[in-house]
Design a protein around this nucleic acid. Structure first.
Lengths: 337, 337
DNA sequence: CTGAAAGCGCTTACAG
DNA sequence: CTGAAAGCGCTTACAG
């Protein structure tokens, strides 16, 4: 049962040295005899000493805790998890640990999580911002805790952002469908208040108009939050007058919802489908699903690099990085492998 | 550029009170006039004061940091991510933040991550143990940092464990295949050094023997680490003499590897397939894949409960919790919906 | 090369 | 109801 953890003082006593010497040895600082260092290492090992970084940080000049916070929509979302892994890997090389949290796109939950991490003095925050106002975070930034937004821009704060080119990705998807003869296309998206949805709708619309096609023939349904809701929405469209011959889905969950509806009607080979964002077994489905790929690994890597860079130099100019997407043709749009 | 963060002293000065009073107000302790409290709240808001929990913890009697560590094989693995989310939710109700890390089943990386979190004085650790020796963690437990192992038992330490009943799950899978007339079955698993693989192989073998079937007709291939490797292994089996009529795959990635091989040979409707552990779009595949379901949400929830309980009472007896699995029949074993 | 003192931002234990 | 002192486990700045 819980003995007290040994401190540097305990190690010092056992090694017969001053405790500042222990500090030197533990931190690998120069200016200690090999013999002394060995005695200290031995004593530390015998006592199972583990340094307390949280205590060390308190007095430390830089004030760094070597930890950072990551807030995504949900850690068990495939895209978010891929992002998480990339951020972990980028951070680990710098020996910084990472706190994670799921906002569920809820500004209140996001606020509670963010303030909790700030109270634990993370060095910085990688944030997939909810649609809410984040101006309360501006003071934290001014006080020296940098934030970088991923996947979409935040409301109410000016920070570095790293995201995929949703507009261009949607344009590419729609262009492909048009090129393959589709003149009646459904666009299914998540909440229009989310930047990614808005951008993907905008990109689709613009490309449609550029082709001189009648606006009404691009049917946009947004606000879809679940697979079931998506499936139902598509079913309604299919059963309506002038059903679409192709569907563009703006996000994973929506893509699979659409697959469900098409399978249910047995139309998965008749109606073309193109999704935004790749997902685990897209290529195992029959037909395999064509998608606009974004690169969560790159997004996470670049966001972390930016955060770490800003930690070194807080005066860096704010940067907005937009990463390209890749049209990945499989079979669901009637043209791939 | 980074002004210094205000401290309780700064707030006290601005509110014209002693800084202990600020501490009382910030922590919601009783014994402060409403009027005084208001002045303090106002000053804190004006200065954008954020308490420093890491400093507070240093002197605090309990020594708690209200944070815990979670180490899984990889945060972007579907099962691990579901576990992660459940743990986050269970922890959040107690306002504890969570550090995460991916071991990649590598004992060295695991050690580095674990020691890093310990140095940051997490209150406890939820660990999906790598196959390596973890006895170095025994001292941490003795020193008051509880650990609970999930998904599999750890080597070298005695701790609470929470895992799914792999043996019974495998028995159920094999029993089902036998009942449906299969007399030549392949078992495909990951590294045999991993407890889950060993248990699933053992469960399968035992049930096979219980049915009085010749041991040789249950072909076990273990050590499979990637989808590609799995697909190749199954292809070899299919091309060999006496190919199996059914396949039992011990894990997600292996199941999808098997799907790939079957699709490649066009045998997905001829050869029965049963996987251990459900996965995202198992029911969207054609045929939909039958699986033995485990419940990562329950595993995570129970593990966290146990850890938090032990934090309250370090003398709790060590407990090993085994959660049941559910046979979920779809189409891939020729019998489901 | 080594160590004693002061201080980080809080909480604890105590005094008024 | 309020506050001054001591202390948590370290690092910093300084002295020998």
């Amino acid at each position: 049962m819980a003995r007290k953890r040994p401190t540097m003082k305990d190690v010092a006593a056992r090694a017969g040295v001053g405790f500042k010497t222990v500090s030197r040895v533990i931190n690998g600082e120069p200016g200690v005899t090999e013999r002394t260092a060995e005695r200290v290492h031995l004593a530390a090992a015998e006592l199972h000493y583990r340094r307390d970084m949280t205590a060390g940080n308190l007095r430390r000049a830089t004030g760094r805790t070597d930890s950072l916070g990551l807030l995504v929509a949900s850690v068990d979302n495939e895209f978010d998890a891929a992002l998480h892994r990339a951020i972990e890997d980028a951070a680990q090389q710098h020996r910084v640990s990472i706190f994670t949290g799921s906002t569920d796109e809820d500004p209140d939950r996001e606020r509670q999580l963010a303030l909790g991490l700030l109270a634990r003095r993370v060095d910085g925050l990688v944030l997939m911002p909810s649609p809410g106002d984040l101006s309360y975070l501006q003071h934290e930034i001014d006080l020296g805790t940098p934030i970088v937004a991923v996947d979409r821009p935040p409301h109410g704060i000016t920070v570095d952002t790293v995201m995929a080119d949703s507009t261009q990705g949607a344009r590419d998807a729609i262009a492909h469908l048009i090129d393959h003869g589709h003149r009646r296309v459904a666009v299914l998206t998540h909440l229009g208040t989310l930047h990614t949805a808005a951008q993907r709708i905008a990109g689709a619309r613009r490309r449609w108009e550029d082709a001189g096609l009648p606006a009404n023939d691009l049917q946009v349904v947004d606000g879809l939050t679940t697979e079931a809701e998506t499936a139902q929405a598509l079913l309604d469209l299919l059963d309506g007058e002038d059903p679409p011959t192709a569907v563009f889905t703006a996000r994973n969950q929506i893509t699979t919802g659409a697959v469900r509806a098409l399978q249910q009607r047995g139309l998965q080979r008749e109606i073309a489908l193109m999704g935004f964002d790749d997902f685990g077994h897209a290529d195992l489905l029959d037909p395999a699903i064509s998608v606009v790929k974004q690169d969560p690994g790159q997004l996470g890597h670049r966001a972390t690099q930016r955060l770490l860079a800003r930690l070194e130099d807080h005066s860096l100019p704010v940067e907005h990085l937009v990463l390209g997407t890749t049209l990945t043709l499989r079979q669901s749009c009637g043209c791939g492998g």
